[in-house]
Amino acid sequence: METVKIIKFHPEKCKGHMDCEVACSQIMHRNDKGGDWSAIRILKTENGWEMTDCNHCGLCIDMCPVQALKRLPNGIVVIDKKTCIGCQSCVAFCPTHVMRRAPGEVVPHKCISCGACVRACPEGALELVEVPISEIQETVYHKQGDCQ
């Protein structure tokens, strides 16, 4: 487990179709709503399009009181919905704000690097790339506090 696949965004290619979000919400919640039901989010800014998505840094793993989050052998960080107790700790502490909660639900959803969004994008603005885990990993818990 030295590398992990994460989503890379090419903003210059994005036209804001949001097909990626719809594809994601189909995977996450079996609906076509995108938006709050999607793990990947595309947001319009003054400078064009921005994407937020999980980079599998793994801080959430140590935040979870019931060990519902774990890193798989392929490096992907996943949430076990049956174990999750909906406390929202991971949502609030996610350093990139990509652990999210869909309306009416307490179990958060997160990107599993399945690539559905990459395949859905007609512009080729998304890409799955392999990065060393050591580059993105947050060695985590105690860094949230101050010993002085």
Binding site: C87, Q88, S89, V91, A92, E105, V106, G145, D146
Partner: peptide, 27 residues
């Protein structure tokens, strides 16, 4: 449940951001 979760995330985030410089309870 939405009402509770929204308030909860707001408060969690406040602890995340402020505790280090307030009471340092987490550490």
């Amino acid at each position: 449940v939405d009402k509770i979760a929204k308030v909860g995330i707001k408060h969690h985030t406040q602890i995340r951001n402020n505790d280090k410089s307030q009471c340092n309870m987490r550490t």
